[in-house]
Design a protein around this nucleic acid. Structure first.
Ligand SMILES: NC(=O)c1ccc[n+]([C@@H]2O[C@H](COP(=O)([O-])OP(=O)(O)OC[C@H]3O[C@@H](n4cnc5c(N)ncnc54)[C@H](O)[C@@H]3O)[C@@H](O)[C@H]2O)c1
Ligand SMILES: NC(=O)c1ccc[n+]([C@@H]2O[C@H](COP(=O)([O-])OP(=O)(O)OC[C@H]3O[C@@H](n4cnc5c(N)ncnc54)[C@H](O)[C@@H]3O)[C@@H](O)[C@H]2O)c1
Lengths: 221, 221
DNA sequence: CTCGGTTTGTTCTCAGGTTCACAAACTCCT
DNA sequence: AGGAGTTTGTGAACCTGAGAACAAACCGAG
């Protein structure tokens, strides 16, 4: 095995693997909290809810951090995954649209513990701007560009109604944000180089409904 | 083209297609609201943010609902997709854990308009049980079984802290719920035949962070 | 009725992801 | 030191999904 400087870390991790790394990270943190210092791929895979072969292959993209015949050092692996994902330092985040959902997000303590820090809450409604949520004052939406520049914000969260989401996204992009998490049920179009991920309650429920319908049909037939 | 009774509708729609049908449905509804009665696969694909070949292939699993040289009848296709997903009638849903997030979900108007109806809000904390959210009273968690039986609830939403989620899921399963949407950041284990989908903010943000880190690295190199 | 233009439904090919299975590498015990 | 037992890392087979490309089917004009 060749020694591996951070700079020459493998460049191309498959997208499916990237999506699972946070799950492994969480499982490792849970193991640490239970005082477990070493684990096999089998155990970690069970904790993460995946196949152990898949887990091993996923980890192999990061490097060779296990020991054959022994398993993985939990704390070491945790650090390596966190470093690979990029959550060893906190990422500044802005949330736009502080309604029902925005309030819940702003109050959500899981943010800070997972490598993110809410630096600003923005809303277009002046009535909202009197308010503070968990110690952060709600500010006017047109402060976006200033705030992004000031805090080097790279990640924006959209929690506005669907009809406002594209406009908000456009402003985020011109302000320099290149990663967007969208809770509004709408397709965003953004330039090349900007990543958008969506979280969509209705879609998830509809997928469940589809399968539920099939189950029920099979029953009555 | 053979005539097709509802019963002999194609049985095996690929999972990737199932996940996109709700997106198409939403796009079609939006077209209807704009007074558009016919559209080509190209136009619908643009509205849904996908490749037109992919859209056509997806729709072909449902049947042959378009007309060559013309396109699709928007209202007709909308109905067919809704029927396939199973959202032509409302599905009763229970939400467990009415904290920050649970409140937002309970207040969310998009539920009813998308084929779902919240029949009960449940929480273990007696202090919560004084409260009503958008006209629905919060009830004790141990009413779950009764409520599920009474309303034939098939879908449950978990919005409790992570440490309570597995216990809630177990109770849901024994009550007869076979589809679970989980917002708690934990892996649920459920018996064969029960579907779980998760919505996980931290994972989405970490995936964005991973790509963001790569972008920034490339820049400074 | 025929022909040109349009758009669907489908076939084919390729890329990506999952799982199996096993050699290589390690530990511990004798 | 050697051998038995364990567990990783990975090659290879298999499966699923994406996209290009095109024949079949439809419309409307002349
Ligand atoms: N509430 C939920 O549980 C839930 C669940 C799933 C999806 N969603 C989606 O999340 C989004 C927000 O939902 P909500 O229930 O919080 O809605 P909401 O109406 O309570 O809040 C929206 C907020 O966005 C602000 N806003 C509107 N236009 C804006 C603009 N151009 N710039 C900045 N701020 C603007 C409004 O002032 C308001 O405060 C919606 O798109 C909704 O469909 C919500
Ligand atoms: N708030 C957010 O924006 C957000 C975002 C992403 C994920 N989450 C996750 O969603 C979950 C809920 O978050 P929250 O901020 O609403 O938390 P919260 O603490 O505000 O609410 C949790 C609620 O669950 C209830 N509860 C606890 N144990 C229960 C049990 N056994 N049965 C029934 N009810 C029980 C509590 O009484 C409380 O009302 C958490 O797992 C959190 O990690 C929240």
């Amino acid at each position: 095995m060749t020694s591996r400087t951070p700079a020459e870390t493998a460049r191309d991790i498959p997208e499916a693997t990237v999506a699972r790394l946070p799950v492994y990270l969480r499982a490792l943190i849970s193991l640490i909290e239970h005082g477990i210092s070493t684990c096999s791929s089998e155990e970690l895979a069970r904790a993460a809810g995946v196949n152990s072969a898949k887990l091993r292959k996923d980890l192999s993209y990061l490097g060779s951090y296990g020991t054959r015949g022994v398993g993985y050092d939990v704390a070491y692996l945790r650090y390596q995954i966190a470093r690979e994902i990029g959550v060893t330092q906190d990422w500044p985040v802005v949330i736009v649209g502080i309604g029902n959902l925005g309030h819940a997000l702003a109050n959500f303590s899981g943010f800070r513990s997972r490598g993110f820090r809410v630096v600003a809450l923005l809303d277009a409604d002046p009535a909202r701007q009197e308010e503070s949520v968990s110690g952060i004052r709600i500010r006017p939406f047109d402060h976006l560009e200033t705030i992004v520049a000031e805090h080097s914000v790279a990640i924006g969260v959209i929690a506005t109604p669907a009809h406002a989401a594209q406009d908000v996204a456009d402003h985020m992009v011109t302000s320099g944000i290149r990663s967007i998490l969208n809770f509004a049920p709408t397709v965003l179009s953004v330039p090349e180089g900007v990543d958008v991920r969506k979280v969509d309650l209705s879609i998830e429920l509809q997928i469940l409904a589809y399968h539920e319908q099939r189950k029920t049909q099979g029953e009555s037939a």
